[in-house]
Write a protein that binds this DNA or RNA. Sequence first.
DNA 1: TAATAATTATGATTTAGGTCATAAATTACA
DNA 2: TGTAATTTATGACCTAAATCATAATTATTA
Lengths: 198, 198
Amino acid sequence: MIAEELLLEFGAEIITYTKEEYLFEEGKKAHYYFQVKSGEVKMNNFNAQGKEFIQSIFSCPRSFGEPPLFSDIPYPANAVAVSKAEVFRLKKEVFLDLLLKYPKVHLSVTRGMAKRLYYKAIMASEISSEDPEHRILTLLDYLKKDVHHLNEPFSFKVNITRQQIADLSGLRVETVIRATKSLEKKEELKIKNRKLYR
Amino acid sequence: MIAEELLLEFGAEIITYTKEEYLFEEGKKAHYYFQVKSGEVKMNNFNAQGKEFIQSIFSCPRSFGEPPLFSDIPYPANAVAVSKAEVFRLKKEVFLDLLLKYPKVHLSVTRGMAKRLYYKAIMASEISSEDPEHRILTLLDYLKKDVHHLNEPFSFKVNITRQQIADLSGLRVETVIRATKSLEKKEELKIKNRKLYR
DNA sequence: TAATAATTATGATTTAGGTCATAAATTACA
DNA sequence: TGTAATTTATGACCTAAATCATAATTATTA
């Protein structure tokens, strides 16, 4: 996250995307630094059969899509607005210039990438080795602790749909529905009028 | 990757690990920057049933395990020597100091993390959505192009075992063996006395 | 160089989770 | 406020890959 004033000072634009609109596409080169101002943006992939995999969902003040700004690699996934979203957009060259001028900002960008690498490492291991219930709990615990900074049991009202949980954990929506019901029986989750609590 | 002279100048130690020896463990706090000098190191997880997932395999001059140096997160996986390995080890505080003194080094460390994030994003999507043959080809193509910088067809002699391919792609070794044979029939791979070529 | 371990190989069987179909409940929106 | 779309829900079934068993081949090391 980079302070809004600093972004504007360096000439960042604020762009409004409508729901489902693409910000960039898998395989393309990166030209901008992006940071969410309002709304939500997801990064995703589709396989040949049209199954979606959501890499991550970002809301204010998260940035995303930095890796290809640093290295000569294309975007590994698309970025799509989940809802109407306002996004800061800063030209690549200006962004890199900013990092050199402000080492602390560079460090905070690095810190953000470190956290995402942590999340990816955890989910890769989960998706490859764990059963649906385990995967879902790990995902929800990550969101609860590392994103929403909550600790009390059942204090986290899950704000994503079963379908999104499925797409984030590599499962199918029916499996998520069945697994969450089973987790409710085991008192790992609460379900109050269809909303999950963890 | 940080130049060896610079590492030594900042007081890095060179530590020799024997095959199978642990460098650090999942869940622990990070105190050092690590960089391979010789041999190979892998990062891995084990699930409750003992199934291994390999996050990555690192050889000279790759660094690994930086994310928890930047953010207050534990190691998401173990680091284990695949073979006898010599590793540069630099104290966390000295490492961060070095980055501030040498912005270009900071940028190259960031670049390294960016590449790993790219690999993780690709593999997460593969493991979650693709069939065994697709996963294996994506993994091998990544190793071929992005690690070994090769381009010619079948110029990449795969230097990891079927078991390691399985542990990197979330499959079982029998599945990898069957899938690679099928890929050979489709002329996507060559197999010359048990070695894979891509 | 003999013994042991690791790797590759192959068939038979099992099963978890995907797929398909259908519907109720809730939410969005025109 | 009524209609459409989305989300949650549930049962039946099917299949891809895991599991299990067993062995040949190659590599390691004692």
